[in-house]
Amino acid sequence: MNKPLNKMAVQATINGEPTAFLCSPGQVLADVLRDELELIGTKIGCNTGDCGACSVLVNDRLVCACLVLAAEVEGQAVQTIEGIAEGGVLHPVQQKLLEHAGLQCGICTPGVVVAAKALIEHNPNPTEEQARYWLAGNLCRCTGYDKIIRAVLDAAQQMRQEAAV
């Protein structure tokens, strides 16, 4: 009754590095990132796309890694929380979350960082309402979202100023 191990070889660019991994056909990207590639910053809160803790970018598109089959990313570019700080320099969203105390337990934080980065790339000047709706898929039970939203808007403003210089 045990089926033989049925692994697929997948090649993708993960956080800028060409990466090859083996996965089973039904394995989701979140599990491969965490268990095979030791990228444990992608968190699993629900496994059904309802909490956003596993948010990653696939070809710059914001998705839940629990709802992507690992085999689907063949030839694609995946960016996880581990790839957001470039050369050890924090992304403004990361820096502003720290400064605004926009995290308490921190389990949602990697997903929030990835989603907020995608928001600002998509819309460099989001309103409060736009930020709230964009991040509605990132559940946070600790903060009431207040300091998260302030941090994201502040990061966007800083990035606009830097872009203008």
């Binding site: 059904t48 309802d50 930020a131 709230r132 509605a136 990132n138």
Partner: peptide, 17 residues
């Protein structure tokens, strides 16, 4: 038994507090 139907507030449900 899930976050879809056990409805905790999402970011767009709340104002600044």
């Amino acid at each position: 038994p899930g976050f879809l139907d056990y409805r905790i507030p999402v970011a767009s449900d709340l104002p600044f507090i």
